[in-house]
Nucleic acid binder design. Structure first.
Lengths: 246, 246
DNA sequence: CGACGATTTGATCGCATTCAAATCGCGTGG
DNA sequence: CCACGCGATTTGAATGCGATCAAATCGTCG
């Protein structure tokens, strides 16, 4: 099969979250997207930038990150294949966060003026993009709760559940096995925990038989129990067919 | 002067964050909004609801809240006059969080179908509404960072700075004096802290001469130092004229 | 005055951090 | 093929920030 084109990735993403007409698809297929590769731990867009493009994540894992004045890093959300992490840049001129690759990634850049033209002429597509940013916001909300009110064990289980659900939705998972070469340090930055505690928490999850890890691979050994331990309810992901691939 | 109409509040809000034409204003002025009063600590919209309206906060303070399985509450964001907290409900059918009043509040309900019709016919207004939800998302992002990586003292100072900035932007503040009858318990739920620790943290802020409180009133005694202590940078609020009223 | 919610204080506990060092895993070069 | 280097993971011990529990005080409204 031919390599997936970036615009296909965008189309599939929008189809997962909203209803598109055949005419909309044609418009999106014609969208010019410039592809680029990044190694792990590279900034795609930086806080303070005033970008003229947004980017779609074609493959890999990206984090929206912020730094405190003390230099501590917080990852405020993950992004997987199909996501358009900085779509908000279309209407917010200054970036208030940095988007960094957490694994080697392929991204496609889309000109803002092209997006604006499409949104103006195709309200249906505009709504789909809008909806995409709203789902991102829903995830941020859940993360506030996760970091603010859940203890480390539950918190860790919760992000893992989220990642597995989102990766499954984009076909990146077989049998609850996620191939995520994410470091424990990055997990800590996402959870507001120290690396040391991330390590111990993962050990506890393994000891309880909820997950198995082999290198970068994380496997949910007992999905129902993991979900329960995580206090996880996928509603906030607003997936149209959440049970797909269960 | 005549009492402010809900649609005026909406118009002012949108004007603060984007450029509107005279024709847009006329459309918005014609928007039907049904006003309602709520006491403090009442749910306006609940998690799980599938509302047919969104609401604008005409006066008061509202929190977007979530509960963990253990029954712990997290406030994921505050909303002030002019904000449309559940605008995301326009494109996300199921509510993933509850909106509760933190003080007695006046809110105005706007039908989704009316909003959809406007957005379809006036891309300019649609963009303004979209932008409003993007700013909400930016605030959620900052809160993840605040709760995840800042210690109690800085964290508390940070929310206070945010609240003061936002209240000032809507003319609810004279001389850094905010009239916010918010309980320490609610502050704790917003910060992911216990009520006891909120109390002690506020005492520390007072002891250092950064704030003064008298009942519900919070006063920034030394704005530059408070901002510094808070590690606060208002960029994420995406206000068009951030220095207004400084 | 009485009542109830909010604030304040004191004492103890525990989860997670911090610091330090050892081990593992893997790619590179001798 | 082995030695080396470097980043990631793991382990141990000590510390501390904030939670929890319990009780007193304040404030306001009926």
């Amino acid at each position: 099969m031919p390599p997936t084109s970036p615009s296909d990735v965008v189309i599939r993403k929008l189809q997962r979250i909203s209803e598109l007409r055949e005419s909309d698809l044609a418009v999106l297929r014609a969208l010019a997207i410039e592809e680029k590769e990044f190694q792990a731990n590279h900034d795609v867009v930086r806080e303070g930038d005033r970008p003229s493009h947004s980017f779609v994540l074609v493959d890999g894992l990206i984090g929206s990150t912020k730094f405190t004045g003390e230099g501590k890093r917080q990852i405020t959300s993950f992004f997987v294949t199909g996501d358009i992490p900085d779509l908000h840049g279309l209407h917010l001129s200054v970036m208030d966060c940095t988007f960094s690759t957490l694994t080697p990634s392929r991204v496609g850049f889309i000109r803002h003026d092209a997006l604006r033209a499409i949104c103006e002429q195709h309200p249906n597509i505009a709504t789909a993009f809008w909806r995409s940013t709203l789902i991102d916001a829903a995830i941020y909300r859940e993360w506030v709760t996760n970091v603010g009110r859940r203890e480390a064990f539950t918190r860790m289980a919760h992000v893992l559940c989220e990642l597995i659900c989102r990766l499954r939705a984009v076909g990146r998972i077989q049998d609850h096995v996620a191939d995520i070469p994410i470091t424990q340090a990055a997990l800590g930055d996402a959870l507001g925990l120290s690396t040391v505690h991330v390590n111990r928490t993962l050990q506890e999850l393994r000891r309880k038989g909820l997950i198995a890890t082999s290198g970068a691979r994380v496997q949910a050994l007992n999905w129902p129990d993991l979900v329960r331990a995580a206090d996880f309810d996928a509603t906030y992901l607003h997936q149209r067919n959440p049970e797909a691939g269960q």
